[in-house]
Write a protein that binds this DNA or RNA. Structure first.
Length: 245
RNA sequence: GCGAUGAUAACU
């Protein structure tokens, strides 16, 4: 079963649905029965390749065989619908998970928060963040990065900055994605001074900004009419071996 | 023992 699962996972990750399904059928006809992991792999592959209907069909099929979805099965389904911004169904699945007596973990919360961010519903995203804290589910770097990205886009700079402080106070260390989100969000809101502070923070840690960071900084300074700084950053970027686009 | 989550928006 493990062997089948690994191979099916390989096909699923290449979005080769037909091969994945062919192996699954072969498995069903053999002595080896698919388990929860097999179905989770298939459902995840279907979701990620845009076949959510097929994913729901597989959920049905596994139930018909007497297998109940576990937390990871729900996780891939919920994430699939969140990525399509179909928060109605995502939330329905979330409720179903609770009804079945399972507890959502941080991966599920993170997917839901990301889905609400995509659908510009930061209120719901923040509610879930509160829920995580109330229920003792630890927030991680992904939780905070997603929340901060959404809040900055909505111009809720104070809440974003509070969350960033909260994150740091929990000992969570920002990475390149977090810095990109922060600097990009601040630049787009004309907060170049605050963006510069984050840049200095990176510098203190000897982290080299990536191209996205340079591009957003350059665009920000350009918009403000500070061509001198825009060109300085452009040259600095080239000096560091990054290729402008 | 095998499976799941974060930024790069919008417009064009």
């Amino acid at each position: 079963c493990l062997t089948y699962n690994s191979i099916i996972d390989g096909f699923a990750k290449e979005a080769d649905i037909n091969s994945a399904l062919r192996l699954y059928r072969e498995m069903c006809e053999s002595e080896i029965s698919p388990n929860v992991v097999t179905y989770t792999i298939l459902i995840d592959g279907f979701c990620k390749s845009g076949n959510v209907d097929l994913a729901l069909k597989m959920l049905n099929e596994m139930r018909n065989k007497g297998l109940e979805p576990d937390v990871t099965t729900y996780s891939v389904l919920i994430d699939g619908f969140c990525k399509r911004r179909d928060m109605e169904i995502a939330y329905k699945l979330f409720s179903e998970l609770l009804e079945s007596g399972l507890s959502p973990n941080k991966v599920i919360f993170n997917s839901m928060i990301s889905g609400f961010r995509k659908s510009s519903n930061m209120e719901a995203a923040l509610d879930l963040h509160k829920k995580m804290i109330n229920e003792g589910v630890p927030c991680d770097l992904l939780t905070y990065t997603t929340l901060i990205a959404g809040l900055l886009r909505e111009g809720k700079l104070l809440i974003a900055s509070d969350l960033y402080s909260q994150m740091l106070s929990k000992g969570i260390v920002p990475d390149m994605v977090t810095y990109t989100v922060l600097i990009n969000g601040l630049c787009k809101k004309g907060q170049l001074e605050n963006a510069r502070k984050i840049l200095e923070e990176m510098d203190r840690k000897s982290m080299t900004p990536n191209i996205l960071i340079y591009n957003t900084l350059i665009a920000g300074h350009f918009k403000e009419g500070n061509l001198k700084e825009a060109f300085r950053l452009h040259n600095e970027m080239i000096d560091k071996g990054l290729i402008p686009d």
